[in-house]
């Protein structure tokens, strides 16, 4: 069994006419396209609405605005996305294996244990299959969350600062693993960390101002994950940091 995702030839477009929360307009006439098979990274100051935008893609933010999300091939988005949050969101009462196969259970399908074990093996945690999340380290938990995302086998993966709670070395390892296993997926990853964006993104977007706007994306063509020692990357990193700190100093929040 190979992790072959289905046809990837479609992009996803979000159009937000208006989105306000607490009488503040976060987005107005906002358009954003996720290119198929690419990793898009979204950076921006805290409180600018990165997570909100991601949640709009996931269909979790329908109450406060007029949001339209569509796929270029006319397919339904709801069955094509999977979601990975900052917190690993493992159910503490379920074992590692049960956590990975929870999607089956929630949809009332037959639980595909074999496939679950395959992905558990892929993230290197086969021996922990019967462990409760409580017993595992932060890195291990995040790997299980990644295996659960893979198990869902969706074309679009939305990640909200998935590695921000990990220590630096574990974080680098997780980035390598995720980019290897989600090579062919369309990914939107919200992050605070410019280095993460530079390592993983095909396009790096910076969200700023209120209502939110996007800067011209930085395109990076090199193969992922890129090595942190690459001098070109360090240059990009510096450029991105400049942009971000400029926005922070002139933007809404200090």
């Amino acid at each position: 069994m190979k992790n072959l995702l289905n046809d990837q030839n479609f992009s996803v477009e979000i159009k937000i006419k208006e989105f306000s929360y607490n009488q503040e307009v976060l987005f107005k006439n906002f358009n954003f396209i996720l290119k198929s098979g690419e990793w898009s990274c979204l950076l921006g100051g805290s409180g600018v609405g990165k997570t909100t935008l991601l949640r709009c893609f996931a269909g979790l933010q329908t109450e406060y605005g007029n949001i339209e999300v569509s796929c270029s091939d006319g397919g339904q988005l709801g069955t094509r996305i999977s979601y990975m949050a900052q917190n690993d969101l493992l159910f503490p009462w379920l074992t590692a294996l049960e956590n990975i196969t929870i999607g089956n259970k929630l949809r009332g399908q037959k639980i595909d244990e074999e496939k679950g074990l395959y992905y558990l093996n892929l993230v290197g945690l086969l021996k922990n299959k019967y462990d409760l999340p409580d017993k595992l380290s932060g890195g291990m938990r995040q790997r299980i969350a990644l295996a659960r995302t893979l198990m869902e086998n969706r074309q679009i993966v939305l990640m909200d600062e998935p590695f921000s709670n990990l220590d630096t070395i574990t974080k680098l390892k997780m980035q390598d693993l995720a980019s290897e296993l989600l090579k062919t997926s369309t990914v939107l990853i919200v992050t605070h960390d410019p280095m993460e964006a530079i390592r993983l993104g095909n396009r790096v977007y910076v969200l700023y101002e209120r209502p939110g706007r996007l800067k011209q994306p930085i395109k990076i063509d090199k193969n992922k994950p890129r090595q942190i020692t690459d001098t070109n990357l360090l240059e990009l990193h510096a450029q991105l940091l400049n942009q971000l700190s400029f926005e922070q100093n002139n933007g809404l929040e200090t």
Partner: peptide, 24 residues
């Protein structure tokens, strides 16, 4: 977060109750 995750997994209200709300 559990509820969000379940929604993206296309869970029904009933299975959210049974597999998430009640156990937690």
């Amino acid at each position: 977060g559990f509820l969000d995750l379940a929604l993206t997994m296309n869970a029904s209200q009933w299975s959210i109750l049974r597999h998430i709300r009640i156990p937690s």
